[in-house]
Simulated assay, not measured.
Amino acid sequence: MKKLLLSAVMLFGIAISANAQDISKNALGLRLGDNDGFGGEISYQRGLSGNNRLELDLGFRNSKDVDAFKLAGLYQWVWNIEGGFNWYAGVGGGIGSWSYDRRIGNDRYKDSGTILFVAGDLGIEYNFDEAPIQLSLDIRPELYFNSDDYREDNFGPDIALGIRYRFN
C-alpha cells in the first residue's frame, strides 16, 4: 500500500512539473471590474517560481459622495492549459479605507471606516507570443470583516478583466 501511494504521489508530481510553464517575472497593468465601485485597479504580478506568483492590486474610488481605496494581495498557483492559455487559483486578503459624505435635503450623513478582507481567486489568462501582453478573466470572492457600515452582507464577488504588460 505504501509503495502504491508513493508511486501515485511521484506520478502526480511528474505530471504537474511536465505541465508547469514559466510565468513572467513581472507583469503590470489594469484589472477592470466592478466590486463596490472599485471599477479599476492597478495590478502587479511578481513571479516567484515556475508556477507560483504574487499579485498586488490597488483600487481607488473617488466619486461625489464616496472616497475609498483597497489593497489586495494574493498568492497564486498557475497551471498551463495549452497554446498560451493558463488557469490559476489563489488565496489572499487585503485592507481598505472608505468615507462618505452625503447630503439629502438639509440633512448631512458622514461616516468612514477601515475594512479587512480575505479573498480567493480563480481565473484564466492568455499570454500573447507576439507581444508581451497578458489578458485575464477572473472571479475574486471577498469576505469582509469589520465592515458594518460599508457592506451589509460582508461579501463581495469581484469579477474582472485584466490587461497587463509582461517584462523581466
Rank of each mutant, 00 (worst) to 15 (best):
E142V: 00
G96C: 04
L28G: 09
N106C: 03
L28H: 07
S43A: 13
S17R: 02
G47A: 00
F85W: 15
D107C: 08
F128I: 03
L48K: 04
A72G: 13
V118K: 00
L5Q: 05
S136I: 03
S7P: 00
I42Y: 09
I124W: 04
A15C: 12
L161S: 07
L11M: 12
P141W: 00
G96M: 07
G93S: 03
F60Y: 12
L58N: 07
G162V: 01
T114H: 08
L161W: 08
I14H: 02
F167E: 11
I159E: 01
R103V: 13
V9P: 00
S24A: 10
S43Q: 08
V91T: 14
L71S: 05
L135K: 07
A27W: 03
R164K: 15
Y75R: 09
L137S: 05
I163V: 14
D149G: 15
L4T: 10
F38W: 11
L48H: 08
A72M: 10
L116Y: 12
M1L: 07
G83D: 15
G40I: 15
G33V: 05
G123F: 02
V78A: 12
Y126K: 07
E125K: 08
S147P: 05
W98R: 08
L6I: 05
L6A: 06
G13Y: 00
I139W: 08
A20T: 00
S99L: 05
G84F: 05
Y75H: 14
A15H: 01
K3F: 11
F60L: 15
I124Q: 03
E55D: 14
D153W: 01
F128W: 14
N52P: 10
N62C: 09
S99H: 10
F85P: 12
D153L: 01
L11A: 12
Y75L: 11
G113W: 06
L11N: 03
D153P: 03
K64G: 14
I163F: 06
N19T: 01
L116M: 08
S136P: 07
W98L: 03
G90Y: 05
N19E: 02
Q21N: 09
S147H: 12
F60G: 08
Y165R: 10
R102T: 11
N168L: 13
Q21S: 08
M1W: 03
S99T: 11
N52G: 13
G92E: 03
P157S: 00
A27I: 01
K2H: 11
Y75D: 08
G93V: 07
D153Y: 00
R108M: 01
G29W: 04
R103Y: 05
G120S: 02
I163G: 11
R46V: 12
R108Q: 09
K70T: 05
S147D: 15
L30W: 06
K2T: 13
A160L: 05
L32Y: 12
G73V: 04
A8V: 00
I16N: 04
N80F: 02
G84T: 09
T114L: 09
F85N: 09
D158T: 04
L74C: 11
R103M: 12
N35C: 13
R151C: 01
I163Y: 09
E41D: 15
R61W: 02
E41V: 09
K64H: 14
S112L: 10
E125Q: 15
D129H: 11
D148T: 13
Q76M: 08
K110R: 15
N154M: 04
D148R: 12
Q76A: 09
G50E: 15
L122I: 07
